[in-house]
């Protein structure tokens, strides 16, 4: 897509989609440069007062130990956005990879994969993630893998129905008759034609993953200290709830602006196509 077409596509988005796009870009930038623009080191006790109000020195006040909330939020966002992005990439690679195998492979492969994924999808994702965390623990890498695995079956289901539909079309039959191998069929003929709906699914799954990760961290089962994502920030400051401290509201609103932004963008982008 050339840059002018991209620009036009953005200009055509409804207002809600533009807001979503701005929020998404904002959080990607924050995840990339957040720790470098933080005014204080995230772990330093820079304020005498705990749960202080917003001030020119501490834009978002201080947390339950007197640390700068803005600095902690800037480095927490990197974990939330980064870890979720890696997890969704793993989930989509495995799910879509299996889906392509099911679409171009022999029939028994499809049967086997579909049965297995149907079983896994009958375990609600939060429950599945909790069982995995209980069994394996939640180090940074394990947590990423656990969250990715939790969302493989959902992505497989969508990708398989797209891929199987495409694999039945004439042009794929022609390629097959030409003697192209299965790998070529999957990657060159089928995959490029399912990218667009697949992107919408990946975006939605990213939202689920952000919510699941923050939820786990909020429960104390996600990222372990000293690392802290946005959900951990909400958890550690729950004692400030009774006084309405910024330290608890800011990270919760940050998560919401990320997930709502992605949702608005996807909704606007997919509706534009349907009409």
């Amino acid at each position: 897509m050339s840059s002018t077409r991209l620009f036009r596509a953005v200009a055509r988005l409804p207002l809600s989609g533009k807001i979503g796009l701005v929020l998404v870009i904002f959080w990607i930038v924050i995840a990339a440069i957040g720790p470098f623009i933080a005014p204080y080191p995230p772990g330093s006790f820079s304020n005498q007062e705990v749960f202080s109000e917003s001030s020119s020195e501490f834009w978002l006040g201080s947390d339950y130990l007197g640390r700068d909330v803005l600095s902690r939020l800037l480095s927490g966002a990197r974990f939330t956005v980064g870890l979720s992005a890696v997890a969704v990439a793993i989930a989509a690679s495995i799910g879509t990879g299996f889906a392509l195998m099911a679409a171009v492979g022999p029939h028994w492969v499809d049967e086997l994969l579909s049965r297995a994924m149907d079983t896994l999808i009958s375990i609600p994702s939060k429950i599945f993630a909790l069982v995995l965390v209980a069994a394996f623990g939640s180090s940074l890498i394990l947590l990423t893998v656990i969250i990715a695995i939790t969302y493989v079956p959902g992505n497989f289901r969508i990708a398989r129905s797209l891929a199987v539909g495409l694999a039945r079309l004439d042009y794929v039959e022609v390629a097959r008759a030409r003697g192209e191998g299965r790998l070529h069929l999957a990657l060159v003929e089928v995959l490029p034609n399912m990218i667009r709906p697949l992107c919408a699914d990946i975006g939605l799954r990213f939202v689920f993953i952000v919510l699941l990760l923050s939820g786990l961290s909020f429960l104390g089962l996600g990222l372990q200290p000293p690392d802290a994502d946005l959900g951990s920030l909400v958890r550690e400051n729950t004692s400030g709830l009774a006084e309405g401290a910024l330290a608890i509201i800011a990270p919760a609103v940050a998560i919401a602006s990320l997930t709502v932004g992605v949702n608005l963008l996807i909704d606007a982008a997919t509706q534009g196509k349907a009409r």
Partner: peptide, 26 residues
Amino acid sequence: NIMTLAMVALPEFLVATIAVLVFSVK
């Protein structure tokens, strides 16, 4: 549509936090 779209994506602890602030604190 915009309202429900946003509500679907809200983390539950944000909704709960706001509810506590409004109804029990304020």
